[in-house]
Design a protein around this nucleic acid. Structure first.
Lengths: 231, 231
DNA sequence: AACTTTTTACTGGTATACAAGTTTCTTACT
DNA sequence: AGTAAGAAACTTGTATACCAGTAAAAAGTT
């Protein structure tokens, strides 16, 4: 293998494998041996092992010595916990956002939510658009805007850095269940209206009631549909 | 989120190096080459590299290809951000704790805070006791109790798993500044009294005011004392 | 046929040799 | 002495060979 002055042969491989896992090209439970990957990428086992170590730390794979390396199954308990932490952090800053609401933040949020709602309408009549991909891009932007409004983007960055496990869950959720997206959009509108002072009820309550209920029923539904993907 | 991993050679080495870094046996900025470590532990570079990869993911070391491997300097921005997230999560559940306060939780917290306050008294008259070590053990127990009270221990476990960077800061803080500990104990009593309903003021406000101020002045003080340890 | 033993192929863990880039010291020249 | 070119001593990155343990297929035994 030619060495092309890279600071990142193993980094590129790491990112590629990670993407394959998150897009279910490598499915939960799949065996991915070091030698197989080495011949796939036409490198030796060394950079592969380096990549796998990082993926193991993110719990996207499980290495069983002398037995094999496997794509980890999705731990729904972890998904639920991640979701809880993410919710707590966001709700925790909402009042601060409300107090420091700038015009720019407001229009950003309004435009974003409008785009989300329009996407749902378009999805009804047009099968072609990649609803999932577009939605999660808007979703990411929505939440980042909120944290940026109080100069705490780092919290959102932190959440993203911990979301490897959740990402897979998100992919199979959104791609098949438009009702799930509808609930998320409703949630976003609710958050925005709370920030704008149009409603007084703290979103934390509704999170805890029907939104977590929605998450749990979604988990149950996906467990039936893809029983092999879950722990 | 904690990686249990295999209890193998490289895992033991990983934990040993990690401890050496957190206890400043390997100081921020120190060069720790793979070959040096290999001869130190009397193994080859392979398991060393495996360990270093994991430490690199936790940002406890920085690897510069073809140049060297260095113990990372403490990023005070990260410490501040970590502290913010930790505070937000804890404050976010306080009201829930207050509503579901059990007798056991209450006595656990009271005993814990009493032990902390007694420790401060003892520290005045007895130079021998390892104040730092005892305090942080009590501190850990205090916070874990709070999260357990609402069946959310996983949040505290999550916080701990992200605390590598913060741990080093904690070590040099506590070992030299009893005033810092005094503030922390006061903070703990305040949290407990809020949960007990004895005071109505939400601890979030006091966090934001003098406790974060205390943190910042502590950072400044440590930066003067150990200029080489910080970024 | 059913059970036990042995072989074989595969796995990740480790040690080692070499490649490629950086730094530092040495050497040669002015 | 001062400067610049060059050799030598580092560094981590990668490839490869071998080790130890697992598991399943193959062979032997009853």
């Amino acid at each position: 293998m030619i060495n092309k002055a890279n600071d990142g042969l193993s980094t590129r491989i790491y990112e590629d494998i990670k993407q394959k896992i998150e897009l279910f090209e490598f499915k939960p439970g799949d065996r991915i041996s070091e030698t197989t990957l080495a011949s796939l990428y036409e490198v030796s086992r060394t950079p592969i092992k380096h990549s796998l170590t990082r993926l193991e730390n993110e719990e996207l794979i499980v290495v069983k010595p002398q037995i094999g390396t496997f794509v980890s199954k999705i731990d729904t308990k972890h998904v639920h916990e991640f979701f809880t932490i993410r919710m707590l952090l966001e709700v925790a800053i909402l009042d601060e956002v409300k107090e420091n609401l700038s015009q720019k933040t407001l229009t950003d949020l309004q435009n974003n939510v409008s785009a989300q709602e329009q996407l749902l309408v378009d999805a009804e009549t047009n099968e072609d658009i990649d609803v999932s991909r577009v939605f999660w891009k808007l979703d990411n932007s929505f939440h980042k805007t909120i944290f940026r409004a109080v100069k705490k983007e780092f919290i959102w960055e932190f959440i993203l850095s911990q979301s490897s496990q959740f990402n897979r869950f998100r992919v199979i959720s959104a791609s098949n269940d438009i009702d799930y997206l509808r609930t998320k959009v409703g949630e976003h509108r609710q958050i925005m209206e709370y920030i704008m002072g149009e409603v007084d009820v703290n979103p934390k309550e509704s999170y805890q009631t029907h939104l977590f209920g929605q998450l749990d029923s979604n988990i149950d539904h996906l467990k039936e549909k893809y029983p092999d993907y879950f722990l």
